[in-house]
């Protein structure tokens, strides 16, 4: 930016007490906080609709091929899925505690909790990768090489298509979440967050909990019924 913009900033930027955390175009910290929060909530609405399309497809094919889905769900690993659910809920708890720590200004606890959240998130992805490789070895990857020893191969394959699309999209969201979390960790270690400014921690938390909620539905839909 040129000199002019700094001039303009300079002239008008001092109208309010110039809190270093408040971006130039906001009037005050409260406005910025509420905007950030609303922005994330709106983003989560779009995420709900994003997964909604796949839930719609799931609903249709599940009613079309109830038997095939029953066969196929025998191929999913319920203990691993359940364990992963537990892991993800733990990571949600640590994330919530991270937000709380930032609200209370507990710097060390904040860093620890973010680290723990990342750890559990990674465990989840690791287990997921293991499940995928298990499916791979059984030839359950949909496509021309799909193998199904049993009834209704073509219909069973549709379930696996949905399984991989839904869990895959979910995993992508986890990876993105871990990316954001890394950035959060770095900034937290630099001591950027305080009881006056913890919005990034909170909205990352919202995102993380949302990803958790998606899994809360995926687990019964793909493993249990």
């Amino acid at each position: 930016m040129s000199d002019h913009s700094t001039t303009v900033d300079h002239v008008h930027g001092h109208a309010h007490g110039h809190d270093p955390h408040v971006a130039h175009h906001f009037d005050n910290a409260q406005q910025q906080y509420e905007s950030g929060n609303l922005g994330m909530w709106l983003f989560l609405i779009t995420e709900v609709m994003f997964f909604g399309g796949m839930f719609g497809a799931y609903a249709v094919y599940r009613t079309w091929y109830p038997d095939a889905f029953e066969f196929a769900s025998t191929a999913t690993n319920i203990p691993l899925g359940a364990a992963n659910t537990v892991v993800l809920i733990i990571s949600s708890l640590t994330m919530a505690l991270a937000v709380q720590a930032s609200q209370l200004g507990q710097q060390k606890k904040l860093v620890t909790m973010i680290l723990l959240t990342m750890l559990f998130g990674s465990i989840f992805l690791g287990v997921k990768a293991f499940e995928y490789s298990e499916k791979y070895h059984h030839g359950h990857i949909p496509g021309p090489n799909f193998v199904w020893h049993g009834e209704g191969g073509r219909e069973v394959q549709i379930l696996f298509c949905l399984y991989f699309a839904m869990t895959g999209m979910h995993a992508v969201h986890m990876v993105v979440g871990l990316g954001i979390m890394t950035w959060l960790l770095i900034t937290a270690m630099k001591g950027k967050y305080s009881p006056e400014y913890y919005n990034p921690v909170e909205i990352t938390g919202l995102y993380w909990h949302f990803v958790d909620i998606v899994w809360i539905f995926l687990f019964p839909l793909l493993y249990l019924i």
């Binding site: 509420e34 609303l38 609405i45 609709m49 719609g56 919530a96």
Partner: peptide, 28 residues
């Protein structure tokens, strides 16, 4: 309600939750 603080938060967050459920239902 609890982890995402909707119970204690601004009406707009509640509205966002309701809206997303509503439109998901329209779709389904």
């Amino acid at each position: 309600l609890y982890f995402m603080h909707v119970k204690y938060s601004h009406i707009l967050s509640k509205a966002a939750v309701v809206t997303s459920i509503l439109f998901l239902l329209i779709l389904l």
